[in-house]
Design a binder for these strands. Structure first.
Length: 381
RNA sequence: GGGCGCUUCGCAUAGCGGCAAUUGCAUCUGGCUGUAGACCAGACGUCUUUAUGACUACGGGGGUUCGAGUCCCUCAGCGCCCA
């Protein structure tokens, strides 16, 4: 089981410092949670992950159920032992895949609508995604590996997550689309709420279980969901779902949601943050948050620096002998790797730069949050 | 000296009478927030009122044809073979 202790509360915002203790280690919060979807931080070995200031990771129920199957992970001693990575772990429930492989894929959009994507269509009650079927009891998926059908509902997800053995597991939910209308979002919410209760009942392990707040961009639904989920005996709370067509709504949404959640329990914001998001969400009282961006962008050749993003595959970096970021303490920046060399490797389609940039990005993100923790300690945030 | 072949948008290619013309690489632009995706999309002759638009273009020149990157002649450069 986990324990969560708040060590300092900001006077300027809802930000707080905390210590999250898990069977596999302690997490200083607020903390960034790198994503290890299929039991790997893509491009990194577990030893490399250990050197990125990573405190806790999140893996995925859906992906590990498809491949290799939770039995293999369990037989391997659980997610940490299987990965040879002794760190606190969370597992996502598969609820995000209800969206990302469903309406998200159908409409070619993420959970935050970009400015260019017009909302001339909406998702309404009764509508189903092309590749999966959402029922009252769960979701019928088709495995992207071999096309076989697989059913994932709250009971199934919890059973899988118990087999995977993470320290913190998540309730099975439906992440709704930014183009879902109010009625669809409401019905979905009610279903997610029913599933939350099923998850609580289904859990027999001593893993921590977080409930997930939904409600999309709708104030009434966010409040309703936060009150409902916040009223259930979860060990912590995650905030999920879509954030409308404007990032400004994200802070508002957190302001609607977080005050309704039990103050003493940890709060996780699912699937956010760019660097610029971090101070905002932390100021609203988020304790942990995961995001694919540092790892995902690294494999596209994008490195994050104190002076912005670098697209390292660009020709202009070929003769730039500076490190990615002079002010970064990571082993890549301190170890003599130049932009020039990384650019060459990227253009030559070598795989080493993907590893090197991933290490840098994770270290950079984790350091960034470390500074935000320091800012809270100093009363600046 | 003789014979054969090649020359297309940065590089490499396709093209065998209807073509502003294929594909790959490169380049540029955009996208990516609980990861299906070491990925996806777009541009890549010039101009413009961005259009079933105009102009200029497949080594140079000339010809055949309603129409030529494509056929013919010729010149140039490159390559191979024979003396």
């Amino acid at each position: 089981m986990i324990s969560f202790t708040i060590t300092k509360r900001s006077k300027k915002s809802r930000a707080r410092l905390g210590i999250l203790k898990t069977p596999h280690g302690t997490v200083q919060t607020p903390a960034f949670v790198p994503v290890a979807t299929q039991a790997a931080v893509k491009a990194l070995t577990s030893e490399q992950v250990m050197r990125t200031k990573t405190q806790i990771l999140i893996s995925n129920t859906f992906h590990l159920h498809i491949r290799p199957g939770e039995k293999v992970v369990k037989a391997g001693g659980g997610i940490q032992k299987f990965m040879n990575l002794q760190k606190p772990f969370m597992t996502d429930s598969g609820g995000f895949q209800v969206f990302s492989l469903g309406f998200g894929k159908d409409f070619g959009m993420g959970k935050i609508l970009s400015q260019k994507q017009k909302q001339n269509t909406s998702i309404q009650v009764g509508q189903q995604p092309k590749l999966l079927k959402i029922t009252e009891d769960g979701v019928l998926f088709r495995a992207y590996t071999d096309g076989r059908e697989m059913f994932l509902g709250p009971k199934e997800s919890i059973a899988i997550q118990q087999a995977l053995g993470a320290d913190i597991i998540l309730a099975f939910d439906e992440c709704t689309s930014p183009i879902a209308d109010h009625e669809y979002t409401q019905r979905s919410l009610e279903k997610t709420h029913r599933w939350a209760k099923v998850c609580l009942k289904a859990k027999t392990s001593d893993q921590a279980l977080y409930g997930i707040v939904q409600g999309g961009k709708f104030k009434d639904l966010r409040i309703e969901s936060a009150q409902f989920i916040g009223g259930l005996p979860f060990d912590g709370f995650a905030i999920g779902g879509e954030f409308g067509d404007n990032k400004a709504i994200m802070s508002k949404m957190l302001r609607w949601t977080i005050p309704e959640l039990p103050d003493e329990k940890p709060r996780h914001l699912l699937g956010i943050g760019y660097l610029e998001d971090m101070p905002k969400i932390i100021a609203e009282g988020v304790d942990t948050f995961d995001c694919i961006v540092p790892t995902h962008y690294a494999r596209r050749g994008v490195a994050f620096t104190s002076r912005g993003e670098l697209e390292l595959s660009k020709q202009k970096f070929l003769n730039d002998r500076a490190p990615i970021d002079r002010n970064c303490g990571c082993e890549v920046c301190q170890g003599g790797y130049t932009r020039s060399y990384l650019t060459h490797l990227l253009r030559a389609k070598e795989i080493a730069p993907l590893t090197l940039i991933t290490i840098h990005n994770l270290f950079f993100f984790n350091t960034y949050v470390e500074r935000l923790r320091a800012a809270i300690a100093q009363g600046k945030l």
